[in-house]
Design a protein around this nucleic acid. Structure first.
Lengths: 221, 221, 221, 221
DNA sequence: AATGAATGAGCGTTCATTCAT
DNA sequence: TATGAATGAACGCTCATTCAT
């Protein structure tokens, strides 16, 4: 919308080893700053200082703040995707156990300082910037793809659209808890209880859910 | 219906008619700016310009940005609380119908442009500012209090702590949908389906849920 | 030079009793603020607030800051003159005792918080504003007039110009101690010793000083 | 002769030639402004404009006004110390001649435009800022150290504390004349007479003064 | 005699960005 | 690759002042 993002954001080609390292350092420090101070304080100067370089040199790597922000987001999001996939690869055989452990991982992660601070910033940013919204959706799509696979293992008879809806609802519901039981949030102490309550309940829903994704006001008899 | 909220932070007393109008205009424009542009662009100068006044005069009404932000939040939050209470007062007798209509209202409201834009900003702000976090929690506490009452009508046998947990979980889960099915968000089209699916299922959960708030891994007979 | 001071600075005529009181209050509070915060923080707003009135009303009494400052200076200076004269009236007969007590009063006064804070501000202001310089000179002239009278009592044989020079030198020397032994200054503890040393010696000088005001490199026979 | 003082507060490293020049220009213009306009008008913007640069660039060299002020003070004070020491080094052998020439230098310097304008500002600033008070005291301490040495040459029998008191009293007395016989001040014409009167008199005092620093009310045989 | 309301300039400071070296 | 140096706009905020009421 407002900002035009190109896929190649870094202008310093970072062909030498030192340049590569510097590029990594920039993203790492920017990530740290974003988490610890919020995106309002994520200024070029601060990033440059944190990465031990001059503002001039930072703008050699990223000529605009928007470019840096774009790469940073990719960087952070990639990290989450990796984490999620490694979790999924670890658990095995039992479909329900997989379901539980994937959701438990996400729920527990949401209470980390990093995630609690980062995601609300991301959500707010996605409201103003299409590119960010797009990257965010990509990330969540991958997350939901994992969920759909596990749901399919548990209840293959469900319609595809139903599975997608269930995954979306589960994902959204869990994300919503960030604001309430996240790091430093008022109901953090209820986190574990809510996590188990939510997971149990969603598991039941997946198991018993009918084959249609049509609205079903009543499910009785 | 719109109540006139008395400001706690404004130093301009707004005793004259013109002052009253100006005070209203400030909050209205600030609110609009917060939603349209995000809190990063909610500057004193921009608000002043939007309200058609000099920066000096704005700081006659609000001597600091924090004061203005505080009043703005109160203003917006009070609006939500009012809406919620009026919804609750409208629905009648049947407890389950009350449950459905309160949750449906919140879910539908979340898809309005205003709410979709405002709440993520609020969540992000709450991470950096204790006062905002506190006001936000107050608002959600009132919301959940309504939920707890309705839950109590449906299933009085539940332990108090269980009711509180259920209300919290329901509230958090619905809020989470803002980012996915809110205004302009990628899954907005699935909103109605997700709403009904979620509400039906939470209703089931409330009805069948055991009396204890302890973790119950198995719920089968 | 820069500022044009008129003799009638207050525009509010203060014909009513309440107006008179308000005018007094303004000066009193302005004086207090000047002493406690320095003239850099002596703003119209602060004075208005301290005097419990609106800035608008303050500018009814003093339409510009310069006017207020002018009256304030007069006010403060008048206070000092009064004090000095009352001291002189109190001491009696013995000329040398009068000399001692007038100088001791000035020296001790210079260590009060008010004087230590006020006079350097005055000196600095006098460098930029002729009117202030003029008022200050008037004040010091009155002070030195007293000194000259006392010197005359002690050693009438001195030439008039010599008496004036002595008074000026004594006055200047004592004032200089403000910066060193004034309130909160590093050598405050030596104040009493310096005072007595200085007074004793100036007294000797007055007593023995020859009749001419010409430069006398050698005083030996 | 002019030594290049290394700044302690400047953050711009001024490694290039242009940077060096700019740094010099800033201090020079700031000094000029302080003397010409007074410390109340010594603003960052004015300094920047006077030095022909943008406010942004000024704050590249001095990130805060306090830092600039600190360096400026050091700059000016260092200049005075240097001057004083060079004066002292120039005069030779005769102790009394040294005494006369050091005091005469200070007294004459006090009538220069720069000194008359600068020192009252310094005294006023020292009342509000501890750091400034401290630097000022350091400067005067060095000045008095010179005086003490010369006093010691003239009258070695004096107690150390007595010498210190005498130096302090002489220093304070001379400084006090700034306001009366300084540049543009009403009694400037009497300067030379007062200078000689003062110096002669203090020299007598130093020569004849008893060995104790105790108060001596009577000195007569 | 007093207040509320408003202006517009100025403050110190931070910012993204540019460019010569 | 990297730094030093510079710009100009914007930030929140305070100020003296004005004026209708």
């Amino acid at each position: 919308m407002q900002t035009q993002h190109v896929s190649m954001r870094r202008s310093g080609t970072a062909t030498y080893a030192t340049g590569q390292e510097t590029a990594q350092r920039i993203l790492a420090e920017a990530r740290r700053l974003l988490m610890e101070e919020g995106h309002g304080k994520l200024t070029m100067r601060r990033i440059a200082k944190a990465a031990g370089m001059s503002p001039g040199n930072l703008s050699y790597y990223y000529s605009t703040r928007a470019d840096l922000l774009a790469d940073l987001l990719q960087h952070v999001i990639d990290g989450y995707i990796e984490q999620l996939q490694s979790v999924r690869d670890q658990v095995s055989d039992d479909a329900q156990a997989q379901f539980r452990s994937v959701l438990a991982f996400v729920f527990d992660d949401l209470a980390t300082r990093e995630t609690t601070l980062f995601f609300p910033e991301l959500w707010a940013l996605a409201n103003r910037d299409d590119w960010i919204a797009q990257q965010m959706e990509k990330m969540y799509a991958q997350y939901r793809a994992v969920l759909v696979e596990v749901i399919d293992l548990i209840n293959p008879s469900l319609a595809a659209a139903r599975k997608a809806d269930l995954a979306l609802m589960i994902c959204a519901s869990i994300e919503g808890h960030t604001v309430f039981v996240g790091h430093g949030r008022p109901h953090r102490a209820r986190g574990p209880q809510l996590r188990d309550l939510l997971i149990d309940h969603f598991l039941e829903l997946v198991k018993q859910s009918g084959g249609s994704c049509e609205v079903q006001r009543t499910r009785s008899p």
